[in-house]
Amino acid sequence: MFTQVYHIFSLSMRLEWRKKQSFIALFLYTLTTTYLSFLVFNGDVSKETWNAVFWIVMLFAAVQAAFRSFENEASRRFLLYYGLVKPQVLVLGKTLYNFIYLLSIGLFTTLIFTFLLGNEIHNLGAFMLLLFIASAGFSAILTFTAALAAKAGDNPALPAILSIPLLYPQVLTLSRTSIRALTGFSWEFNAPYLLVLLMMAGISIALSYLLFAYLWRD
């Protein structure tokens, strides 16, 4: 099963790599939004603003990135996938792929933020850990809602409407925790928050694993 999951993952990766412009477009998207916030805030941001804007840019980039994951395959390849592998394998592969994708977007956004808005990160390790957990939780929910939206037909607003309310709990906890990674991070104090974040990511992955079969069958 793991080899199949890896197969889906690498297939998605190669498809994405072949169409580099969509990959580049997304990085350009984070670059422009970050530059916009640099201009709006006059290049002078507090740690609170840095944190808030970071997670908003990250969230919207993630929604943009993930909801395309079932778009390319809308017609023929959909059926091919379905015939070849179990739906659970498909969703795990896609989630893994989106996880890597979102993690790289997160790292890139962090780079641009430190470049344009100043290096505000106090505890880099903690921030990276948060980014890691965030990518895991986001990718699970976003992959699932992307599949839902793809199945529901082409309503362009649907992916955002479906996924963002479900992401609120994570984004809220993430921003509350990451502000402390910017100021001063105490592992003992933040352990329950990290645990809750891990739990939310775990629940999301488990739910999309369990429910995807119902969503997928036609």
Partner: peptide, 10 residues
Amino acid sequence: RLAGVYNIFA
């Protein structure tokens, strides 16, 4: 089906 799946997740 889609609504049911989303309902559970939500």
